[in-house]
Write a protein that binds this DNA or RNA. Sequence first.
DNA 1: TTTACTTCTTAACATAGATCAAGTGTCGAA
DNA 2: TTCGACACTTGATCTATGTTAAGAAGTAAA
Lengths: 196, 196
Amino acid sequence: MTETQKTEDNKLLYYFKKWTVITPEDESVILSAFEPCSIKKKKDLLLSGKTCKYVYFITRGCLRSFYIDSKGTEHIYQIRMDNSWISDLESFFTQTPSKYNIEALEDTQMLRISFSRLEQLYEEVPKLERYFRILFQKAYINALKRLNANMWETAMDRYNDMLKENPMMFKRVPLIYIASYLGITPESLSRIRKRI
Amino acid sequence: MTETQKTEDNKLLYYFKKWTVITPEDESVILSAFEPCSIKKKKDLLLSGKTCKYVYFITRGCLRSFYIDSKGTEHIYQIRMDNSWISDLESFFTQTPSKYNIEALEDTQMLRISFSRLEQLYEEVPKLERYFRILFQKAYINALKRLNANMWETAMDRYNDMLKENPMMFKRVPLIYIASYLGITPESLSRIRKRI
DNA sequence: TTTACTTCTTAACATAGATCAAGTGTCGAA
DNA sequence: TTCGACACTTGATCTATGTTAAGAAGTAAA
């Protein structure tokens, strides 16, 4: 195991330990369940129509997930960077074909785990149920907040909120993707930025 | 314990058992942790500014949660009926004041559990972590779907989807609330219905 | 049985953001 | 060093939905 890899693993464990108690024995079981992988910028991690085989913990890099509508337009619903999870959870948990794509916006390093390996890991380390319970709790609360913002706030308010809460994204992600994530066109985002 | 009450409890357990294994001993521990309660139509279960003390499992009835914006307009983000959960999870899990209101749209019966009692219950019946992990997983997936629909589909498509997926709601909930839930005004909903 | 309130509809007008079209600047690959 | 794709901007026009205002129908209260 290289030095780089060790650092990556430790970050994964750091996040587990924030919400649940992990013994040294658990640690090695967890680490052995995850498999390092990487992807080059502009390459696809998941293609629409394929089943999503893994959940990925991003140790370094940036990815977007999006779907393509009947007119061929891409709609981004997630942009994820270092130390967060990415997957198509619906496809992953039901093991059915995905409607979404996941693409790398930067060269990205990840730790991945398959559906069956994760099920097995829950049996080996039941405490992980708590970690993921809390993770999904928070993800759900955030998704509802974003839903409310999209339904009832102006595009300008959403842009300002995002600037405040996710300043790093503006340094690493092109505005055309941020526009789609905010639910508007690049033209509208451009006009909003001019007004400020 | 009345006959009515027993039926209610069994429904709660039925949903737990769908996703995890519950022994007879666990059953009684779970049942004793939940407390029956009820609320009359138009009364408030939660007021903005107050901390949300419970999560509620609705055994029979209907509630809406909404927030009031700076102009005094109500915005509904959840409508929940029989056999589902309702709460302001953010306020509940952080035990801080809520930004939302929850109001009964019908006379409603529930089973409730407090934050500290739920924490204790997780220790007593660790298998419940799995149930709630899966519950939040599904809730998160649904919230993302609703977000995508609100960002990228027309109000008419959203209305038709809701008609298909939640026909019961149209029989029990006034259209003014359904409009708000769909992210549009009652006037727009009226126009959409006329077009069909 | 009158009154008042809630729900729902309709119409005229207003507006945020989309669409279409064109143009500039930048950067990586040949 | 030049070319072509990509990122971003700007302007003109269009459209879905909001806003304002009014009225009808149903229901609960007095």
